[in-house]
Design a protein around this nucleic acid. Structure first.
Lengths: 213, 213
DNA sequence: AGGCGAGTATACTGACCGGTATAGCTACTG
DNA sequence: CAGTAGCTATACCGGTCAGTATACTCGCCT
């Protein structure tokens, strides 16, 4: 027993929903699909409720408002991608620098499988107003990824992990968008090729020195 | 010569508005600012008309519908960015490979000056439904940029211009998005650094004898 | 036994938004 | 001089959408 039980002493009505009811799970799953596939602003709560086989009342009882549902959607997606990425990277025995490159393999699979519209956080950032709580989730996601890449870069012995991580993040975002726009075939693979060059360069004492400064 | 992107209107109706009336110019300028700054879906025609000092009737007389106004906005922005980029690249005497890198300097200035929300076409692509006519304008923009980069790459004597152009496009998009998300400071500069490495590598492979023509 | 959490069903409100209608004004031009 | 292009002003329509209200059912847990 977590002991948190609802001993009525609390005035505030908490709806944080750590544990979701079955209906809430369906709502969240449906919302995730529709928000991602057709855009957050483009889809209404009515459509979500209907598609989830739930009444609007239930939706509002569980999530409080569309804005909160949006945040829940982004958080769920955040957790999903983090898990997928880290699992992919750690899955096999790899050298640290192979791990850095493996993040692009993970991205390739992720985009290929069921994410034609690119990064949900970038999309949310574009769609939502600047002061929407979802913006924070989106930024946190990028901050986390940057940190993860930095850690891997440091582990690999990069000369300047922070800088390399920044470069790789740009490649991730660029590949994601280019895929979504269908501007370039196999964008993730191309980003990986670039990453390979940069990682190699960052690990080898400067030789090329393209330094136009 | 880049095969120009085309965008030739097929069997267009009237109201193509090559020459805009003074009121139409104000509407388009206002719409451009508001659509870009706050999002296409977030802003209504009423707000645009009011801000432009124009009645809704005039707006509809000139542009027909919000969708057509959106297309006009995207086309105008397309022309603006193409002009700015090409002018920047051709402005000074540069070697072909300096031109490739200069596109990132142009991007840096563009983002720094008045475009904190990144690429308007990426934003439009995210905001608009898949079958919206604006999607075509957005894709054409990317196709043009890819072609422009390919031509510069070929001019510079890159081993595989198409491939290099694709890489550089990914870098452009990645820098743009990273800037917009404020995930990385000086994203365009970092993208330029990466581009420098890739360009150097693309020109140097298999002892090219560096025929600096 | 009974209370409550979770849910269904349906109807409703209030705001906003894209687009239309009507009426009138001014300046140019054939 | 009359017609028309370009414009203002205002009111209105129909639809959509977030969110609320009411009333009722079912099953679990004290």
């Amino acid at each position: 027993m977590t002991g948190d039980g609802g001993t009525a002493g609390r005035g505030g009505k908490r709806r944080d929903a750590q544990r979701l009811t079955p209906a809430a799970v369906r709502v969240l799953e449906t919302a995730s699909e529709l928000f991602y596939a057709r855009g957050i602003r483009a889809i209404g709560v009515e459509a979500i409720a209907e598609e989830a086989g739930v009444t609007k009342k239930t939706l509002y009882d569980r999530f409080g408002s569309k804005d909160e549902l949006i945040v829940a959607y982004l958080r769920a997606r955040d957790a999903l991608w983090r898990g997928t990425l880290v699992r992919y990277v750690e899955e096999q025995v790899r050298t640290p620098q192979e791990k850095l490159l493996a993040t692009f393999d993970a991205l390739r699979d992720w985009l290929r499988e069921r994410n034609p519209r690119g990064c949900a956080f970038v999309n949310a950032h574009v769609e939502l107003p600047a002061d929407h709580p979802g913006q924070r989730v989106a930024r946190d996601q990028k901050t986390w990824l940057l940190g993860y890449l930095r850690d891997l870069a440091a582990e690999a012995g990069a000369a300047e992990p922070e800088q390399l991580a920044g470069q790789l993040l740009i490649l991730h975002e660029g590949a994601s968008i280019s895929h979504s726009l269908q501007a370039i075939p196999r964008a993730a693979e191309r980003a990986r090729e670039m990453a390979a060059v940069l990682v190699a360069q960052s690990l080898a004492p400067a030789r090329v020195t393209a330094g136009t400064r």
